[in-house]
Nucleic acid binder design. Structure first.
Lengths: 341, 341
DNA sequence: ATGAAAACTTTACGCGCGTTAAGTTTTAAG
DNA sequence: CTTAAAACTTAACGCGCGTAAAGTTTTCAT
């Protein structure tokens, strides 16, 4: 089989002119069915594909889509990224996946490098508190961007995420309905703005139900939440820092660390009579099903958050990269009852 | 500040001719220090960067490097990918990360798409047993490829991975030294060739030490190892399928499922007297520290596997994409004693 | 059959940069 | 100061494709 060098050559072999072949690759439906058939027939015989560099250099808009998550070693983001990737591919785009690995410099570098990719759009889950707002603002001004998971006020053309109030109200109400009101366990300086919303929601729900909020803040920086939760829980348990037998963790990864600490200390966690503690959490982390005990938690609406994010980005791209007004879409949580509370 | 359109314009503004500027971007050390200074001075004033599409179209070899892992939702691969990414960037390359998500079709599609990126090289951790060997073979013939983690006999210019015998011999010997000989717990049809090597190593070590190997194979397909381990363990425990009080899991993710099953069944795992079972495993998964109990396991030499992989790829690229002979490099495991055995 | 619209072909230019060739300036050694 | 090598400048071509203009063929409703 002859090696095809360029579109010129392929066009000749298929018996169609190059401009028409070019049109075909841009949109197969834009050419007559008979010529389309001839091109696709040749395509099967010769296996040619346009040089993406030449294509991208000349097209005003590439078919690239950037996907940026803050921490890919968290399976939660890996799963979301997977969904986003697949949706982009299905829509005929070329996704590129990036992880900021929890570091501001990396996030900045990624956005910087992304600009020279001239992407049609970007799906960005920012680091949050540790993001460099000015960098992200500048980026969003140049590239059609949809924020997801972590909201930065006013940045990006739209935000899609989860309704943190829905998470916390469901877990808190459940715990109160079935036992003592929970303390709230979180990091002192959370990386993610969702954490702040969850704390506020906790306070609001507790007060509305006539209970005094009790917040436990543990030290620790970065994205090693399990480690932070573990250390923090050991300290709290040693100091007898709990007011009731119920704890609500800000997120599942902290809870995983908390559960490990309880296990080490011989504290049985669960809703059965022989348990000393009930622990619930938020996120429905992929591993929450396999903690000991399995974790009662509020689940993200993965499918809707991811699905709506790509849909919104596609709308944004089709609208020429700008929306009239910035929208924020929040999906409610689904309470997942397991054994820990 | 004026917007720079292309290298021509930037060259004019910096007072240097375009071919020299082009040379500079290819290798800053290839121009005279004085001209280099003038270019970099202009670079600070004007913030210009070459159009990567035009660059890549014209250079014979791009600076792109593909990184392909089989399953990114496994934090093990996320961590490795992170290391590989950073090493590539540090060496002046542009890494692109892809996950096959456990599916052959996706792996094929990724390799297919990777070809049109004309990468300088690719770091590939294949799916293993479920890989389409012919596709990978064809790919490796066209693109300088270093395999890592999962070896496919004869494919790629080199393989870097862990010495599975070292893993299993250390865990088995430790368990025998400190208690009863372990059964080996694994999937019936493992996705990964490492699993087969581990089984063989188990049999060999057991026989050498004068014990009869006992292998427990559980059903389940795909990459949801925790779930498979969990279901399989429940079955084994229900059927009293263990010969001794010791179990060695083929990998940590299976062990995580196993531990969850034990917890549910009220079986205490650990090396203390009040424990009914000892469980060890292999990989030192990022979460192994936070299982209940924490997992005794054999750790990959992450740094060396990842480090040597990129080094080898760089050597390969500098050698023009071919090695005289295919090399296989295996790094030994490090036994990590925790509470489960 | 007729005409206009739609789709095609041919021709040609442009994108931004790599790269080469020929001529000029700078550098550093003698 | 001489001189040759090294580094530069100018000029020009090519990469593979998008795209526009002008002319030709096909299609399809009347």
């Amino acid at each position: 089989m002859t090696k095809i060098k360029n579109m010129e050559e392929f066009a000749a072999l298929s018996g169609i002119s190059r401009p028409t072949v070019s049109k075909y690759f841009h949109d197969p439906d834009s050419v007559r069915p008979t010529t389309r058939a001839r091109i696709e027939e040749a395509l099967e015989r010769f296996d040619y594909r346009p040089n993406i560099y030449a294509v991208n250099q000349n097209r005003k808009l590439t078919k690239n889509i950037g996907i940026v998550v803050p921490y890919l070693a968290d399976p939660f983001f890996a799963e979301i990224a997977r969904y986003l990737e697949q949706s982009c591919i299905a829509a005929g785009y070329r996704p590129s996946l990036f992880s900021s690995h929890g570091e501001q410099k990396l996030e900045n570098d990624i956005l910087d490098g992304l600009q020279s990719l001239k992407p049609a759009g970007v799906l960005l889950a920012p680091l949050g508190r540790t993001s460099d707002q000015s960098v992200i603002e500048r980026f969003c001004a140049n590239v059609p961007t949809v924020l997801f998971d972590s909201n930065l006020e006013g940045l990006g053309a739209a935000f899609i995420g989860s309704d943190n109030f829905s998470f916390v109200s469901q877990t808190v109400e459940y715990m109160i309905r079935t036992g003592e009101p929970p303390s709230f366990f979180e990091m002192r300086t959370p990386a993610n703005p969702n954490a702040n919303k969850r704390r506020k929601a906790y306070i609001e729900v507790m007060e509305r139900l006539g209970f005094e909020p009790h917040i436990i803040r543990v030290d620790g920086k970065g994205w090693a939440f399990e480690e932070i939760g573990h250390k923090g829980a050991l300290k709290v348990l040693a100091e007898n820092g709990l007011r009731t037998n119920s704890v609500l963790c800000s997120n599942d990864r902290l809870a995983i660390g908390f559960l490990a600490a309880c296990y080490e200390q011989g504290i049985r966690v669960g809703r059965r009579d022989d348990c000393a503690l009930r622990l619930a959490s938020n996120d429905d982390h992929p591993f929450a099903k396999f903690t000991c005990p399995s974790l009662t938690t509020a689940a993200h609406d993965y499918d809707n958050v991811a699905g709506r994010s790509v849909e919104t980005l596609f709308e944004l791209i089709e609208s020429g990269g700008k929306f009239e007004t910035r929208s924020e879409t929040l999906f409610p949580a689904r309470l997942v009852l397991r054994d820990s509370a």
